[in-house]
């Protein structure tokens, strides 16, 4: 007990406390004097149009990652659930990206889409699409979304598959006897019964897209070009360590902490109770 308390206190409570405290301070350029300014940092954040732009980017980014990876993995899981022979092999072949570091996943996709050396960029070029994510913000955003979604596929796949296998086979059989085809069975039986898993994954994926993808963005685009791939977490890092705006960065941290707190509450309270069959 004691060790964990100690570690938690030193490396968690202390920093978190400091973040809250610092978010009320403004420091001068040389760190010589600090001034207590109440909520000025917060006011600054919420009147800054750039912060809203970041928020918007984050929302698009998370929605893209969540939809793409969940869609692909649901499809794969449904198919793997159908297959009689070789399901285990497919499972093995599909789960390993879970172990790939986000930053490494980012580098892999960066290489493939690299305007001068990338295979995919070259292919796109031959069909008339000019790909250069160093210049085009939308393409850069798409690139990080793809990389982040790719890494998350295996996680979603595992959970979807587990969820699918928990659905009793007799339900499918009964529906089949009643004359429902595979497509219809999926939408009237499988999908509704899968909804607890789906909601759980929804929350997990959004949290993942919000926080764990920092490595991808930092390694691939560094928030650029312009601000097009700047997410909230990247902004905290950039304002704090690069811009050295400690107060502003701390205030953003606090905003994020509140956000995560809310999501956790949603996950624990709302989802677990409401979406039950």
């Amino acid at each position: 007990m004691a060790p964990q308390l100690l570690v938690t206190l030193v490396f968690f409570i202390w920093p978190a406390g400091q973040a809250v405290w610092q978010s009320f301070l403004v420091e001068d350029a040389f760190g010589l004097s600090t001034e207590f300014v109440w909520f000025e940092n917060y006011a600054q954040i919420f009147t800054d149009s750039r912060y809203y732009h970041t928020l918007w980017t984050t929302i698009i980014f998370s929605a893209g990652v969540t939809l793409m990876s969940m869609g692909v993995s649901l499809l794969l899981a449904v198919m793997a659930d159908q297959v009689v022979r070789g399901a285990q092999v497919y499972k093995t072949l599909l789960i390993w990206p879970y172990a790939v570091a986000p930053a490494v996943a980012g580098v892999l996709w960066l290489f493939m889409f690299h305007p001068t050396v990338g295979v995919l960029a070259y292919m796109l070029d031959t069909i008339g699409i000019e790909w250069n994510h160093f210049l085009d913000g939308d393409q850069a955003l798409l690139l990080v979304i793809i990389a982040a979604a790719w890494k998350q596929i295996s996680y979603n796949f595992l959970f979807f598959l587990a969820g699918l296998q928990a659905i009793p086979q007799s339900l499918h059989e009964a529906a089949a006897i009643d004359g429902a085809g595979p497509g219809r069975r999926f939408f009237t039986i499988t999908f509704p019964l899968l909804s607890p898993t789906t909601f759980f994954l929804l929350v997990v994926n959004v949290v993942y897209a919000f926080f764990d993808t920092f490595g991808i963005i930092h390694a691939v685009t560094k928030g650029g070009p312009g601000d097009s791939t700047r997410t909230l977490v990247y902004n905290v890092f950039d304002d704090g360590f690069v811009g050295l705006d400690l107060g502003g960065s701390a205030a953003q941290s606090v905003v994020l902490m509140v956000l995560v707190g809310l999501m956790t509450v949603v996950q624990f309270r709302f989802v677990e109770r409401k979406v039950q069959y």
Binding site: M1, Q4, L5, T8, L9, V10, F11, F12, I13, W14, P15, A16, Q18, A19, Q22, V207, F211, D212, F214, V233, V236, F237, G240, F241, L246, S249, A250, S253, L256, M257, V260, G261, T264
Partner: peptide, 25 residues
């Protein structure tokens, strides 16, 4: 109290508290 102090950390990934943690370290 101990329980809640520890479980508060569940909610916060390193990335969020990175700046203050860095200062502490």
């Amino acid at each position: 109290v101990c329980f809640w102090i520890i479980f508060m950390t569940l909610m916060l990934p390193v990335e969020v508290r990175i700046m203050p943690t860095f200062q502490v370290v």
